[in-house]
């Protein structure tokens, strides 16, 4: 596994390598190198299983971190590939040609984070949210509390009671008077 990472370092701009476990490593790669690196791992290094594809919002740094976690079941190892994208113009090449399921992940990331994957099948169709007008909800600057206060409100004509007082009045009307 260590040899594999050394080989990859020769061909790709890799930084910030963190060995989380003996068989699990996370590394950062330049945006332009990401798809070639993933393709090489898939085609030549037997990393054939796309475990997850997700994003992390580093709002303070103005970056999205895309994480691709690839698994090789022959040598029982995982590589987590981080790609940093600008929050303002978040766009990434699609990998649906390597894994059919990547299209679903990309559709979800487009909806939840607003990261675009041009050419990915049905990427513009809503996945979970229908008719969503706000900023993508999984971004850190989306305020869930403000949204729910604006969208949901107490129904008029409803009143609430303190349960203890209410039951006392109902069961023992004489005493409460």
């Amino acid at each position: 596994m260590k040899e594999l990472i050394k080989r990859l370092e020769q061909n790709f701009q890799i930084s910030n390598i963190v060995w989380q476990r003996e068989n699990e490593v996370f590394l950062t790669v330049e945006k332009t190198d990401a798809v070639p690196l993933i393709t090489q791992l898939n085609h030549y290094e037997s990393f054939t299983h796309l475990v997850i594809m997700t994003a992390v919002d580093w709002l303070e740094a103005g970056k999205f971190q895309l994480t691709y976690l690839l698994n090789n079941n022959e040598i029982k190892a995982d590589i987590g590939i981080r790609v940093l994208l600008d929050r303002e113009k978040a766009e990434m090449k699609s990998i649906h040609h390597l894994w059919v399921t990547a299209a679903t992940y990309q559709r979800e990331l487009h909806e939840m984070f607003g990261i675009d994957f041009p050419g990915s099948p049905r990427v513009d169709e809503p996945f979970i949210l229908e008719g969503w007008q706000e900023i993508p909800p999984y971004r850190r600057d989306f305020d869930t509390k403000k949204y729910s206060e604006k969208t949901y409100f107490p129904r008029p004509g409803r009143s609430t009671n303190d349960p203890q007082e209410y039951m006392k009045k109902k069961l023992y009307p004489e005493e409460s008077e």
């Binding site: 989380q20 476990r21 699990e24 475990v51 992390v56 994480t67 987590g80």
Partner: peptide, 19 residues
């Protein structure tokens, strides 16, 4: 830090990626 932990549930690989 960040990590990924997996387990075999009844339907297949179940895992959590935590940052």
């Amino acid at each position: 830090n960040e990590t990924y932990i997996r387990a075999e549930c009844t339907r297949g690989e179940f895992g959590y990626y935590t940052v």
